[in-house]
Design a protein around this nucleic acid. Structure first.
Lengths: 265, 265
DNA sequence: ACACTGTTGCGCACTTCGCGCAATACCTAT
DNA sequence: ATAGGTATTGCGCGAAGTGCGCAACAGTGT
């Protein structure tokens, strides 16, 4: 009954999700097939990214881990980590900072997890996940409606919460950035929120790896505020950063070792 | 230099966390020790719950997965799942429901992740993690300050957001529950929040597995509101549920197959 | 009816794993 | 400082898990 192949794989996923951890032998007995077959199933499910194989079995992989693992193998991961390291270095003890949603700010949150005497306010689920166990960091969430794609909170609830607070520093992400139009996002709700976030901080940084410079995949924009700093990685050549310089925007280019290549103002 | 044992394990954790996935051979080469030693390290780190071993290596385990796996092997896990299944069955299409923080409500969120046309509002990070990829469920977070232990949001931000909404159903967790004092939590901030949550819903359910019945580990309480329903599992004998009946509180006892043992009103 | 794709079970070689053992490094208490 | 106890490490071996090729078979489309 080879029809059962798809059904069995789905069942394996369900079992793994509910029990968290399953063994090849257990699955083999449950479905009455050989261990070889189970192994093949696990191989396939692993390739699909729904499962992680362990010694003699498999473990469930939730959405966060799924994307997280995918992110880590992405080409921009190193760039994001460099940017995050630099950004973490700007944060001083005792400050209250605002972290936008996104993977880059998630990386920054990871860097900050071991700090003490720090308040991190965020609109991003990724950030919350990274700081969930950081007992020495005060973590606040602005709330709102969860956007599935960006894993961030938006909406009137978010904006209302934001209007009650100010910050020492705000770190924003972006889907794209151009010197002319500023931050680019999928919809106006997000750009308005980012604009608001940037306005309520003493120092505002826009963290984008080089590939996003000069691109605007969507048509909602939030212009750079006065004094905002653009932070990117060494994959950005001077042709990419020049338009920002021309408009008087501070640009910081960080290399993988954390050194800064140029920092005009 | 066996002093390096602890350092090496910490370094392994760091490496695994940043790269997401590492191999025994790679680690062996990096630290200049035998594969056996690495395996022992991984064994220990796995027992400590910081790591998941794969075939020929290990993978990072974030905080969510850590606690999640621990929870799933906990003795009350089956009870929680039974309660969550019953609770999910109460939720009708189109409703807006409120989920408290906690592992039981997290299990409920998991049950609801595949539903459509549903709005879930929550104060719990666990719930958010379970619903992060649930594209057919509208997810809202009330925001607030993250409490590390309960992984839930509390504070004036949470309460302010709560005051702007009402719900068809609210599902609350608890550290303990007695017929006399109601829900028991570690501090007054949490009990006040739960009280508020229960007041703003049409139907309110208190989800607690049997071991928590009759216990009040702390001294902050939130009394049962009128019409609230206590939901627990079959490990609760009639001696445990009787005090609640005596006070006119509806009690639902769910067995692992989802059947209800008693439901007086 | 026929070919084709996908699935399954089996055997085999390879890799990885866990455990016991002896030697060594580290820690601590006197 | 020294001595005793604990923890760590490397090595060898048997056991377990894994991947791959092969042949047989089910389900599908022409």
């Amino acid at each position: 009954m080879p029809r059962g192949a798809r059904d069995r794989r789905a069942a394996i996923l369900r079992l793994a999700s509910t029990s968290g951890l399953t063994s090849v032998e257990e699955l083999s007995n449950t479905f009455g097939v050989t261990a070889s077959t189970i192994r093949r199933d696990l191989s396939q499910l692993e390739s699909a990214g729904h499962l992680a194989r362990t010694y003699g079995g498999a473990m469930a992989l939730d959405a966060h881990h799924e994307t997280s693992l995918r992110q880590r193998s992405g080409q921009a991961f190193e760039a994001k980590r460099s940017i995050a390291t630099w950004a973490a270095d700007q944060v001083r003890t005792g400050e209250t900072i605002l972290l936008d949603s996104g993977t880059t700010t998630g990386a920054l949150a990871r860097e900050l997890a071991t700090r003490r005497d720090l308040t991190v306010v965020t609109t991003g689920l990724t950030v919350l996940q990274e700081l969930a166990q950081a007992t020495n960091v005060r973590v606040e969430c602005l709330g709102g409606t969860l956007r599935p794609l960006s894993q961030g909170f938006v909406g009137s609830l978010t904006e209302a919460a934001l209007e009650r607070m100010t910050f020492d520093r705000a770190f924003l992400g972006a889907d794209g950035v151009t010197a002319e139009h500023g931050i680019c996002e999928a919809d106006l709700q997000q750009t308005r929120l980012k604009e608001l976030m940037g306005q309520r901080a003493e120092h505002t940084y826009v963290l984008v790896h080089a590939a996003k410079l000069g691109h605007h995949p969507f048509h909602a924009h939030a212009p750079f505020g006065p004094g905002w700093t653009l932070v990117t990685d060494t994959a950005a050549d001077s042709a990419a950063t020049a338009p920002f310089h021309a408009r008087g925007i501070d640009v910081v280019v960080v290399d993988p070792d954390g050194r800064v290549r140029e920092e005009p103002h």
